[in-house]
């Protein structure tokens, strides 16, 4: 399992956000496959030299977003990304709220709604092409 997490304390994102987003990115890019086990909280905390609670918080965040599921005693495992009913409705709502914030920011920058849509489409396309580049 090729999971490489890097953190930069003192940067603008809280540490648990950095960890969660790196892991979710790894999942999205296919570096972590469904069923893969995430490193134990203690081990990752020791490696990164951070509070284990921060790692736990990151894993919790990922679990709430539907990327992983934790089984007491065994560890935390990557979930199959295919949608599963109303749990994902909540996730979609959360995603929607996040997108709203981004929309507000975009509009405030002075972008017209059309330009904003164009901008979003471009980003999605770029993300997918990167995924294709890295994994077969």
């Amino acid at each position: 399992m090729a999971l490489w997490v890097q953190i930069s304390p003192g940067s603008k994102d809280p540490l648990y956000v950095q960890i969660a987003s790196q892991i979710s990115r790894a999942i999205a890019l296919g570096h972590l496959r469904p069923g893969d086990k995430l490193p134990p909280v203690r081990k990752l905390a020791e490696e990164l030299v951070i509070n284990p609670n921060t790692v736990a918080r990151a894993y919790l965040e990922l679990e709430q977003q539907g990327f992983v599921a934790s089984k007491t005693g065994s560890g935390t495992f990557v979930l199959d990304p295919t949608l599963q009913d109303d749990k994902d409705l909540a996730q979609l709502n959360l995603l929607g709220q996040r997108i709203d914030t981004l929309i507000a920011q975009g509009l405030n920058l002075g972008l017209t709604p059309e330009k904003l849509i164009e901008f979003f489409e471009g980003r999605v396309r770029r993300f997918l092409s990167e995924q294709n580049k890295r994994s077969p």
Binding site: P9, G10, P14, L15, R42, A45, E46, L48, V49, I50, N51, P52, N53, T54
Partner: peptide
């Protein structure tokens, strides 16, 4: 920091520390 992380891993330990290195505080503080 490594020493602190090593200690926190054990059951029921508490750490109170003051530091001027904020990135260190960010790493380990609850």
């Amino acid at each position: 920091l490594e020493g602190m992380v090593h200690l926190i891993q054990k059951e029921g330990r508490t750490i109170l520390f003051s530091s001027h290195i904020l990135s260190d505080v960010e790493r380990v503080a609850d």
